[in-house]
């Protein structure tokens, strides 16, 4: 009988483990909101349609890097007909605030803060967080 109770206890433990996200969320119920992303106030569009940006902006960034560093091309024609200089710091972070936009979403998603900013500059950080 002791053995059977032991097995049942382990089974119960396994149940709790499998359903762990449920218990975790019970404790966090108040703060399960999606991140509050601060969008640029004076702009309507991103450089690509927003659905593409949301899911695949990292592809675009690597594409830009490839074009700039390997092919010496610098101008990007956006889907709405504008021209942008292909630059992480100059263009993306010219419109977007790294901390209140990129980082918030990345923290929410559990993306390792990309190491890009080991080398590239966050202009906000340079100005002591003020713009």
């Amino acid at each position: 009988m002791r053995k059977k109770i032991g097995i049942l206890a382990v089974l119960l433990g396994f149940f709790i483990l499998v359903t762990f996200p449920l218990w975790h969320s019970v404790g966090m119920r108040h703060s399960l909101e999606p991140p509050n992303l601060v969008l640029p106030a004076n702009q309507k569009n991103c450089v690509m349609p927003v659905a593409y940006m949301r899911s695949s902006h990292m592809f675009l960034l690597l594409n830009w890097r490839e074009l700039v560093v390997r092919h010496d091309q610098h101008t990007f024609r956006s889907f709405d007909g504008k021209s942008y200089n292909m630059s992480l710091t100059g263009t993306c972070l010219g419109c977007h605030n790294k901390q209140q936009f990129c980082d918030r979403c990345h923290t929410y998603m559990g993306v390792q803060t990309p190491n890009c900013f080991n080398c590239h500059v966050d202009p906000m950080a340079l100005r002591g967080g003020m713009r």
């Binding site: 996200p21 449920l22 975790h24 969320s25 019970v26 119920r29 399960l32 999606p34 991140p35 659905a51 949301r54 899911s55 695949s56 592809f59 979403c105 929410y108 998603m109």
Partner: peptide
């Protein structure tokens, strides 16, 4: 073919709160 991960996470979290 990337999907919108933020929305996927929203969905996954909504599953956890039933």
């Amino acid at each position: 073919d990337r999907v919108d991960l933020e929305r996927v996470k929203e969905f996954a979290l909504s599953l956890t709160v039933l």
